[in-house]
């Protein structure tokens, strides 16, 4: 039987875009406002779970070809890598720095190395959350 959940699918297309945009906003704003890697990763994972719910696991897996176990591992590696990079510069483990950079569109931007650590945290959270959902749902 072919399910005819047109309304759910077409709203999911719009809602997933909104959720992903909002999660990137939360992720980038974590330095000065509420937000950060953890909540950004969780909202990204919620968008992916919404896609799983409305389109089915197989179809989403064909289109997002990411192994979420590897994604979690890469996130932890990035987080550890930022810590060891500060050791290489002769500072204590996990020391962070920041600098002002002239980017082409944004102008004078303050870039902090904590953002890279946050990227690691976000990837680890996305990988873990989606992996939990997938391993629960495949138990048949």
């Amino acid at each position: 039987m072919k399910p005819n959940d047109v309304i759910l699918r077409s709203v999911t297309r719009v809602a997933a875009v909104i959720i992903l945009t909002f999660s990137i906003y939360l992720f980038m704003n974590g330095h000065h406002h509420p937000g950060g890697g953890f909540i950004g990763g969780l909202s990204t994972a919620s968008a992916i779970v919404l896609l799983y719910l409305s389109f089915g696991i197989e179809k989403v897996r064909e289109n997002i070809r990411t192994d979420f176990k590897k994604l979690a591992a890469i996130g932890v590696l990035i987080a550890i890598g930022t810590g060891t990079a500060s050791v290489l510069f002769g500072k204590p483990f996990l020391t962070q720095t920041f600098g002002h950079v002239d980017l082409p569109i944004f102008g004078d931007t303050e870039l902090a190395s904590a953002l890279i650590f946050d990227t690691g945290v976000a990837l680890a959270v996305i990988g873990t959350a989606v992996n939990i959902i997938l391993s629960i749902s495949e138990d048949r």
Partner: peptide
Amino acid sequence: VFVFLTAPVAAHV
């Protein structure tokens, strides 16, 4: 926008 978009769909489902 999000609430206006999703709440009726939730009720429909």
